[in-house]
Nucleic acid binder design. Sequence first.
DNA 1: CTGGTTTATGGCACTGAGTGCCAGTTGTAG
DNA 2: CTACAACTGGCACTCAGTGCCATAAACCAG
Lengths: 207, 207
Amino acid sequence: MTHQAHRLPVPPGRRRITSRAELEQVAFDLFDRNGFEHTTVDDIASAAGIGRRTFFRYFASKNEVPWGDFDAELARMRRQLAATPPAAPLMDAIRQAIVDFNAMPAEQWPAHRRRMTFILGVPALQAHSTLRFAAWRQVIADFAAQRTGQRPDALLPRTIAHAMLGVAVAGYEQWLTSPGDDLCELLDSAIRALGSAFTSAGTSSGE
Amino acid sequence: MTHQAHRLPVPPGRRRITSRAELEQVAFDLFDRNGFEHTTVDDIASAAGIGRRTFFRYFASKNEVPWGDFDAELARMRRQLAATPPAAPLMDAIRQAIVDFNAMPAEQWPAHRRRMTFILGVPALQAHSTLRFAAWRQVIADFAAQRTGQRPDALLPRTIAHAMLGVAVAGYEQWLTSPGDDLCELLDSAIRALGSAFTSAGTSSGE
DNA sequence: CTGGTTTATGGCACTGAGTGCCAGTTGTAG
DNA sequence: CTACAACTGGCACTCAGTGCCATAAACCAG
């Protein structure tokens, strides 16, 4: 008669022994200490007290570790774009969504910085990021397609998505090397600067 | 008395048994037949009649095979940018350089298309391309830096480089899926369309 | 021709990521 | 207790990439 708290189906089968977040913590500690490349999956599994084989049931690859729940983040960005007033100019809407998407409480900055330092700094992860960023681009492309009445795989939506990803990465790279700067301001000014570069004459500064 | 043709230093030591270009041919045939991922380095080495170990003296990794002499190509793009009249607006100069850089005789199109289909289509190569494209971006960033009087790692040059790479890749993706289109026209209109997207109002088409 | 030097070759053994298979474990429901 | 479902992790395997090193093929000087 334990009155089974409603909305807790309690699935059958053995419980998971750990979580992605927990493994990420263990792994990040090792990455910080020994570097990403000199940390083997065996090291992570041992430190977490699980089998090597089990690690690959939590992460499809070692490269996936720093990505957290990226899919959920993308869903958030998609919602932000969907909530954009239809009257706003396309690029303004995208810029605002990107800036909002990367806003977060100040106490999360160090952890986020560490995560992105790995993703954009370690060559193996930098390479792998391309595959993850494809989903990011798809979010932008879908929005641009809907706004321009084209298919998401048409040239314009695809181009805007690729370009905006590039600008965002540029902003992040700048953020990672300048501890004082605000990420959102960097992203905002990077996008605006690109727009200015297209209209301003030759040697003018974009800032 | 063979009159040793001048300008042929004749280096000492054993001659190379093959060349990158020759290995590339052998490898591409296997890739076409079995797919990139199902072709092992052993397969390539055997087909080329060399040892597996020797393969890695010609290519640092299997992922490098489709890239040909990319460094030489980049040097060419750098020269094209350097030869740009200083009066030309920055983005016009970059656009023109990118278009010129990707121009080639029609008989080279099929081979180039095949090469790029691998690089941008196979996930492992797509990921690896990020590392190669960093050098491409550096060429653009250096030019943008010189034109705007900023350092190459400043926000604006970096942003322009990242964005232009994105646009170029978008143009290539479009080209690979539409056999009839002209690559240079796609690249040109992609860059122009991005510029228009920044200035035109909301839902306007960029075409 | 011979020995010394230089460079390329490729075999061997090793690390490390990722995978298929499968027996064993831990939970549920009846 | 039985049936079932899901997670665990060991074992063996493939494949990319690397260090080491003996050998082969070129050159040059004597």
